[in-house]
Design a protein around this nucleic acid. Structure first.
Lengths: 181, 181
DNA sequence: GAAGATACGGAACGGTTGCCCCGGTTAGCA
DNA sequence: TGCTAACCGGGGCAACCGTTCCGTATCTTC
């Protein structure tokens, strides 16, 4: 069990490269890219990736953890805002923007794990507040919302039409608002 | 080129079994089931499936062609109804019910092919009539709608919660209706 | 009921995919 | 300058699946 001796300079450099490449590649193509893609992009052999991260999944977590944590913090912050409806829909917009920009968002929010649960909980709070205030239809659940968003993001990313993401997102947002108000 | 000599009795029986099993299995699990699953369910070897259908895809088409043709006919019939909004939403309800019941519907409507295009066209007519009548938001396209429905069906089928399908479908339907009316 | 054609079953094949490890080599550090 | 951490990337390996092959069983016909 070597103590955490400081990394050799090239090792540190390569670790950074791998992380940066993983951010890019996961962001463009989601979790389901071959690991070689990341290694190549980093200018590094596949073996080097495994020297720094025990599994592909660990690498993915390392990449998305910050982002998901940011989303959670954002959701919790907004939960204290005055207008529950505005808070909820602003957060959804943020989530939509994030998802449109980074393809791995969909995997990040849906893959089981402690962070996902935390995000789920934070979203549930926002949702319930908004529903209680009558700003959002009452029948939908937080789990529905997560699943629906994941589906939407996948639809949007598969599309050849770049405008689709915005249109379907707007449609769902409008569907969430209470009808006849 | 053997003329279409009548099939041997066991051959005819097995062909029916395969078709029936394929209907069930594709309906439960979509196109992405191993072919062996179908063969087993039919009580037949994989070779027998290939004696009757040249490829897995051909078998799938044989299974869904009727259903898609029915959908197309339904759409075309409704295109002549008096109220374009009612016609459109009734058809969507039919599509949703079909999709909720049979998991392969999602593949059937999305996989390229002449039937898909025909369905697409028929749906476009319904949609445009409804949009022109002001019953449906104007920004959405027929391609959006097909993609969105495919996504919704996938979301619904992955869910553990059996009520989710109905809730998200209702949400999207409401989102399609013009806001503030 | 026997001969010949037809069809069957399911093991084996071949292609693909993609995670991960190993063996020889390079390059940093003392 | 030598020792060791780290690199590279080809390939092992396991899983998965569509398809084919061929020895065997079953049906049809005479």
């Amino acid at each position: 069990m070597a103590a955490d001796r400081p990394l050799r300079s090239d090792a540190r450099r390569n670790r950074d490269r791998v992380l940066r490449a993983a951010q890019e590649v996961f962001g463009e193509s989601g979790f389901d890219v071959p690991l070689d893609e990341i290694a190549t992009r980093a200018g590094v052999g596949a073996g080097t990736v495994y020297r720094h991260f025990p599994t592909k999944e660990a690498l993915f977590q390392a990449v998305v953890a910050d982002r998901v944590a940011g989303l959670i913090a954002d959701a919790q912050r907004r939960a204290t805002e005055a207008d529950p409806g505005v808070a909820f829909f602003d957060f959804l917009a943020r989530l939509g923007a994030e998802g449109a920009a980074k393809r791995d968002t969909s995997d990040a929010i849906a893959v089981p794990g402690p962070l996902r649960d935390e995000l789920h909980d934070a979203l549930a709070v926002l949702l319930q507040r908004a529903q209680h205030a009558g700003a959002v239809r009452a029948d939908i659940t937080a789990a529905d919302l997560v699943a629906l968003f994941k589906g939407l993001l996948d639809v949007a990313h598969e599309a050849d039409d770049p405008g689709r993401a915005g249109r379907v997102l707007a449609l769902v947002i409008d569907g969430l608002r209470l009808p006849r108000l």
